[in-house]
């Protein structure tokens, strides 16, 4: 398979808070303890434990976990807003942890921008100047940065609010400002730290769609932190599921939902509407000769729920077609098996 190059590459990353934190990662015995024991023994808390993953160019990489799982610490380690205790972080092949202060600033100014849960807007500046803030820090002239900022403001749908102060905006609007500020510097990667969890459900959905749209239009690499499984499944190309500082499973939404790595993940994804996540590629069975010529055609990455609709509408078995070739078919039994969460059906046929 032709894998795109990695934007971020993380290896054996540890972040331990507490006294003499750096003795923990190297010590196999301490590393094996659970959080409470570690705290009792050393007074330390390991927020990120031995994490490794890669973020591919152009993908939306979601880190998901409950609060306290270490996901927010992890994303801050990527640009060293929090200094990792040990491990390796590279961006486009360059060692981030070895960067000097100036080089690191360059990274933050031009290559990776972050959107925060609580927005982090400057209350004394107008929307326009907040959006232009990153450009100001880069040292761009006033007129130029304001012009650039105005363009981004239009892109995120805040036209007409340029001169307002953050305090006069709704939460959703404020986060659009935060998003615009990150976009204004035209970074290679956008980092999102639970950007929508402080928003109302309806506004949250709007914002998620906004992110989807932006990603579709620009194809920018995104690292997205969330505690909301549905958000993760909706946005993520790949999801890293964290628990107690470790990644317990890393895979596509379909892999996470379809084949949970352990009981914790299984428990986690139990209530997920699988038909919206699992694709027909995973649900199909080999076609016999009659089936391979008739019935509605579906792309392999169509979801099961789309297949259900097609099957119900035509009353026939649906074909999974890629490049004019029939890969397999999905019938009532396959599809119901997915909905019921019983994979045995597929293998039985």
């Amino acid at each position: 398979m032709n894998t795109p190059p990695h934007v971020f590459s993380v290896r054996d990353l540890w972040k331990v808070f507490g006294p003499k934190a750096d003795r923990v990662p190297g010590d196999a015995e301490l590393g094996a303890l659970d959080a409470a024991e570690l705290r009792a023994r050393t007074g330390c808390t390991a927020a990120v434990r031995d994490v490794s993953f890669d973020v591919r160019k152009g993908e939306v990489f979601v880190v998901m976990g409950l609060s306290g799982s270490g996901k927010s610490t992890l994303v801050r380690c990527l640009t060293r807003l929090i200094e990792p205790t040990s491990g390796e972080v590279t961006m486009d092949g360059e060692d981030v942890l070895a960067m000097n202060a100036g080089r690191l600033r360059e990274l933050r100014r031009h290559r990776a921008s972050m959107v925060f849960q609580h927005f982090g807007l400057l209350p004394h500046r107008s929307v326009l100047d907040n959006v232009a803030y990153g450009l100001e820090i880069q040292g761009m002239g006033r007129a130029e940065r304001r012009e650039r900022a105005a363009g981004v403001i239009a892109k995120v749908g805040l036209d007409g609010l340029e001169s307002r102060r953050p305090g006069q905006l709704s939460g959703g609007q404020q986060q659009r400002v935060g998003l615009a500020r990150a976009l204004a510097v035209d970074p290679e990667v956008l980092l999102f730290d639970e950007p929508f969890s402080a928003l109302d459900p309806l506004i949250r959905r709007d914002m998620q769609e906004e992110v989807v749209r932006l990603h579709r239009e620009e194809g920018r690499t995104m690292v997205f932190i969330t505690h909301d499984l549905n958000e993760a499944l909706k946005l993520g190309d790949r999801i890293a599921l964290m628990r107690d500082g470790r990644i317990v499973q890393l895979g596509t939404p379909e892999e996470i939902v379809g084949s949970p790595a352990d009981d914790y993940v299984r428990d986690f994804v139990r209530d997920v509407p699988r038909e919206q996540v699992v694709t027909v590629r995973a649900a199909m069975r080999p076609a016999d000769s009659a089936e391979s010529v008739s019935g509605p055609a579906l792309a392999p990455d169509a979801t099961v729920s789309e297949a259900i609709e097609a099957v119900v509408r035509t009353g026939e078995t649906a074909r999974v077609v890629e490049g004019g070739r029939c890969l397999g078919v999905v019938d009532h039994a396959c599809l119901l098996g997915v909905v019921a969460g019983v994979p045995a059906v597929k293998e039985a046929v």
Binding site: R108, Q117, F119, G120, E136, I137, R181
Partner: peptide, 19 residues
């Protein structure tokens, strides 16, 4: 949060203080 946002945009110590 604001201070972290400023840092995340690559502000220097002086910029963080004054802006």
């Amino acid at each position: 949060g604001v201070m972290e946002a400023a840092a995340s945009l690559g502000a220097t110590g002086r910029q963080r203080l004054f802006t």
